[in-house]
Simulated assay, not measured.
Amino acid sequence: MSDTPTKPPTEPLEPREPAAPSPWDAAEDPSRLPFGKFAPILCGMVFGVLLRLAFSGAPSSRWSAMVGAFIWLAPLATGAITVYLAERQQRRSWAYYAWAPALATALVVIGSLLVLIEGLICAIVILPLFTFMGMAGGLCMGLVCRLTRWPRHAAYGFAVLPLAAALVLPQGAPAQVGQVERSLWINAPASVVWQGINDIRNIQPREVETSLAYRIGVPPPVEAVTVQEEGGAHVRKIRWGKGVHFDEVIQDWEPGRHLRWTFRFGPDSIPAGALDDHVAIGGAYFDLNDTAYTLTPEAGGTRLHLRISYRLSTDFNTYANWWAQALLDNFALTVLQLYKTRLEGSA
């Protein structure tokens, strides 16, 4: 009998299945991580710019940059793609899901300016909406990454959503009419004010520098002179900077009391590049219907009342109307202040 101790028998170990690789560990695997720290944001920007190039069609077409499929869904998709690429690196915070897509969509607007497919006015107006929708897309994708196992499929869905929507959504934006009214007391008699609003020349940029519209790229006014055409009709001849010129055809003419006009544009009224195509007066998306001055004697002077009526035709009229109200209200106040300064001095 051997004195050599024997080892207790051992039970065979059951083979274990290897743990499924987690996409959130990709940051430790360089072969699966072709992205740098800021690359998700830059890739999101490139994706958004490519969408902008895809939506470069003629005004009112389904591939115009003003259709709802682009305005609402392109930044949503940009934000989602940004977060998806970032999540392939590592788990991100909820704050990241918001600020990174906001930055990516802001860079889309800047990139569109750099490649000369967007004007400054449109860029400034659309930036807040784009960043908000980009944040919404990023938060949605972040939720998908945390709650599901199919973030890649969701990313593909977000990527094609703007293009698919452009193909199926009906064309034709609803028209919305709005107006802005402002008044200002001028220490001058109505006769002086009447003469001034019908003949004002050599307007200097410093005289209208408070206007937000002029600060973001709308050409400033140079002169407005009323003439009488053959047949007796009165017409205000308007000249702005950058070669913009058009007629204001008088519809109501009550000397010293009331003046109302509609607008008449010729083929060369707005030279190329003078105004962004998407906000050009008389265009598919924005127009001025009519404008009126009313003069009322008050406290030894004259209260000058200005009313501006306009039309919007976009797939985002509620948002566009907020901007129209803000810019036209500021414009009206600037014009009234111009007349006040000029006419009180002459009086």
Score class of each variant (00 low, 15 high):
Ala26Val: 05
Ala123Leu: 01
Val227Glu: 12
Glu230Asp: 15
Tyr84Gln: 07
Gly138Cys: 04
Ala106Asp: 00
Gly282Glu: 07
Gly44His: 05
Ser56Val: 03
Arg236Lys: 14
Leu51Tyr: 00
Ser2Val: 14
Ile200Asn: 06
Pro23Tyr: 01
Ile270Gly: 02
Gly241Gln: 13
Gly256Asp: 11
Ala54Asn: 02
Glu344Ser: 03
Pro75Lys: 09
Ile117Trp: 03
Ile121His: 02
Ala100Tyr: 03
Ala224Val: 15
Asn321Ser: 11
Lys237Ala: 04
Ala233Glu: 08
Pro189Asp: 09
Glu118Gly: 05
Gly241Asp: 13
Ala224Asn: 06
His278Asn: 11
Gln179Met: 13
Gly301Glu: 06
Ser269His: 11
Asn187Ile: 00
Tyr319Lys: 08
Asp252Ile: 15
Leu312Ala: 06
Arg146Thr: 08
Gln179Tyr: 14
Gly68His: 07
Pro30Val: 10
Thr82Val: 04
Glu87Leu: 07
Pro30Asp: 11
Ser269Asp: 04
Gly232Lys: 07
Val177Arg: 10
Leu107Tyr: 00
Ala69Thr: 05
Gly157Trp: 11
Ile250Ala: 12
Pro5Glu: 02
Ile203Ser: 05
Ile216Tyr: 07
Met141Cys: 05
Ala86Cys: 03
Ala292Ser: 15
Met66Glu: 10
Gln325Val: 13
Pro23Glu: 11
Ser313Trp: 12
Gly345Glu: 11
Trp185Gln: 13
His153Asp: 08
Val192Asn: 09
Ile121Arg: 02
Glu181Leu: 13
Asp315Lys: 07
Thr318Gln: 13
Gly266Tyr: 14
Ser61His: 12
Leu184Asn: 08
Cys145Pro: 00
Trp322Gln: 12
Gln179Arg: 05
Arg236Pro: 10
His234Thr: 08
Val235Asp: 03
Ser2Glu: 09
Thr296His: 09
Ile203Leu: 04
Arg152Lys: 14
Ile186Asn: 10
Leu114Pro: 06
Gly243Leu: 12
Asp25Val: 06
Ile200Ser: 03
